[in-house]
Simulated assay, not measured.
Amino acid sequence: MLRGSLVAIVTPMRDDGAVDFAALDRLLDFHLEAGTHGIVAVGTTGEASTLDVDEHVAVIAHVVRRVSGRIPVIAGTGANATSEAVTLSRAAGKAGATACLVVTPYYNKPTQEGLFQHFDAIARAIDLPVILYNVPSRTACDLLPETVMRLAAVPGIVGIKEATGNLDRARAIRAGCPPDFALYGGDDATGVALGCLGAQGVISVTANVAPRAMREIWDAIFAGDLEGARRQDEALAGLHQALFVESNPIPVKWALHAMGLIGPRLRLPLTPLSGHRRAAVREALQQAGIKL
């Protein structure tokens, strides 16, 4: 089972807007050295919505090659058209990804039955394990626990990234789904609390800049040292908040640039972190012991 600190890695861009694969290699090496438990490529934090299909698949394949089996690679393959999600998921499987992370369809606002059929169709069309991804604050689409429970019975659907930060909802999913159905946090601020409820890990934005600390937190959770995990997480509390002062991945890309790991570029319609927000992000990084 995939578990631990799974970084929702950014996609670095060159000044001309193209994917910066050399910078991506630096990030991957950074995570391998820090002991990150797994990579999530081309998710929300990876600016999936601004990459075309060829770029999307190229980034997944590049990450798989660079990691070379040392840690799992989960590929973001969601789309608001079921057929496109199937296409991306099949391509991720051919590239060698370990699993796919499939976000709820955005903008078209399907019913719960539509959501069930969407994910069921994807799982039946591919050989890769499917992790559901629910983040209604970004998609205007909410995958309710009752539907998650139905989907947990579909062969190939192995877990969910529940990014609402709602612990009551997480409890309902955990209680209503089989023990081997994985629950992953998608909200760094509540990740440790979710771990205390039996979650298998967190798909983390904070891990982009603090990979070793996030890995140590989850190592402590798995060792049963929940109090130790809470203490370690307290040192990152400011960072969990500061990395969302503007839409993700704007702050985390600025932070990685300040750390000297990537260039500052995002793709429109995202723009660089506002000047008046930078001091707060810098302070949070320094409080977490991150050198700039």
Results as ranks from 00 to 15, higher is better:
V135N: 13
G114I: 11
S5Q: 09
A223N: 09
L292N: 06
S68C: 10
L256N: 09
T139G: 08
V205L: 06
I203Q: 07
L266S: 07
L101H: 00
V19E: 10
V73H: 11
D187E: 14
A121P: 05
G93D: 09
R90S: 06
F116S: 05
R150T: 08
I173L: 07
N134S: 11
R174P: 13
H31F: 09
L197N: 00
L292D: 10
S274D: 14
P136S: 02
D54F: 00
V57T: 15
A199V: 01
V202H: 11
F30E: 11
R70F: 00
G159H: 00
G195P: 07
V148L: 00
L115R: 09
P105K: 00
K94C: 03
T87H: 14
W254T: 04
A152Y: 02
A97D: 10
F30H: 15
L261P: 14
A48D: 04
S5I: 09
A121K: 15
H276S: 10
C141Y: 12
T190I: 09
V64S: 06
I217T: 14
R169W: 12
E55G: 08
T164H: 10
G275Q: 13
L243G: 05
V86Q: 12
S89L: 01
Y133T: 01
C100E: 02
V202F: 06
R65Y: 09
K253A: 02
F116R: 15
P251H: 02
D25N: 06
I122Y: 02
G43W: 03
A279D: 12
Y106D: 09
E47S: 06
M259D: 08
V19R: 13
A99Q: 06
P179A: 01
E234P: 10
H31K: 04
D52M: 07
P264Y: 09
I39A: 03
L51E: 09
H31C: 01
A170N: 10
L285T: 08
V10M: 03
R26I: 07
A199H: 06
V53E: 14
R215A: 15
I60W: 12
H257Q: 15
A61V: 10
L183H: 07
R14M: 13
L270C: 08
I217K: 04
F119K: 01
I157H: 12
L285G: 03
A255E: 13
L243S: 05
R215E: 13
G156F: 04
L88R: 15
A123C: 06
G224V: 11
D180F: 11
G238Q: 03
V40W: 02
L151A: 02
P269A: 00
A207L: 07
R277A: 09
V67E: 08
V57I: 15
Y184W: 01
G4P: 00
I9F: 08
H118M: 08
A153P: 15
S89D: 06
H240F: 14
T111P: 12
D219G: 01
L101S: 01
P178A: 12
V40T: 09
D20R: 10
D142H: 15
G76I: 14
Q200K: 14
A81P: 11
G260I: 00
F119L: 03
L167Y: 04
I71D: 08
E234I: 13
L51H: 10
N208R: 05
N80H: 15
V130C: 00
G114F: 06
D225E: 12
Q117D: 13
L285I: 07
G35N: 09
D25I: 07
R282A: 13
